[in-house]
């Protein structure tokens, strides 16, 4: 039903914003990404089968749009971290500093791990929903969240040396071809 499609899209926008924020680490870029993804989805509306998982379909469109834009721009430099002024944080100075460090650490995570972590923690999605939204196996979704949490713990509590990016890439090479695409 055409009305349901547009209503579902509007209802999903906040979650799309969280996903875009996880991928881009930049508020302005996140807004642009959501808008581009919405435009793509509206144009491809006829390819969506009513009654199927709209959220997964829409999340994948946004993700693919991000990958496409990233490859075009060939970005290799870090995007600015979210400034502390962007957050409505109250409390002691040390608490703000710790939160700032958490934000910086989150931004250092591989994109796929950060995306999965945000979806589970901030959006309350199940691993099955994360897997459907990101086009990976449920086990992969779980591993991404697990690795993100463990890496953040290592960085913030100084327990272990941070995992090398090569570790993620090495794991990526061993994944089936269909899942390798997701490890951007």
């Amino acid at each position: 039903m055409k009305n349901d499609f547009h209503d579902q899209m509007i209802a999903l926008l906040p979650k799309l914003r969280v996903q875009a924020l996880a991928l881009t680490r930049n508020r302005a870029a996140a807004e642009d990404l959501v808008q581009d993804a919405v435009a793509n989805a509206l144009a491809a509306q006829n390819s969506f089968t009513p009654g199927t998982n709209f959220a997964a379909w829409m999340h994948r469109i946004l993700r693919n749009r991000f990958i496409s834009t990233l490859r075009k721009q060939r970005e290799t430099t870090d995007i600015e971290d979210l400034p502390m002024s962007a957050f409505a944080v109250s409390g002691a100075h040390e608490d703000r500093m710790v939160l700032k460090e958490l934000g910086a650490a989150v931004n250092r995570l591989p994109s796929d791990q950060r995306e999965a972590l945000f979806m589970v923690v901030l959006q309350g999605l199940s691993y099955e929903e994360v897997a459907a939204a990101t086009g990976c196996a449920v086990g992969t979704a779980k591993s991404r969240v697990f690795r993100a949490r463990r890496q953040l713990q290592a960085w913030l509590m100084g327990e272990d040396a941070p995992e090398r990016v090569a570790t993620t890439e090495h794991a990526t090479r061993r994944l089936p071809l269909g899942e390798r695409h997701a490890e951007f």
């Binding site: 509007i10 926008l13 906040p14 914003r17 969280v18 924020l21 508020r27 979210l82 962007a86 957050f87 409505a88 944080v89 710790v98 939160l99 958490l102 934000g103 989150v106 972590l117 945000f118 923690v121 901030l122 949490r149 953040l152 713990q153």
Partner: peptide
């Protein structure tokens, strides 16, 4: 971690579309 992430991102996520 969960509490920290919510503190950091909930307000941003809740901003009007």
């Amino acid at each position: 971690l969960r509490k920290g992430l919510h503190q950091l991102y909930d307000d941003v996520a809740a901003e009007p579309v």
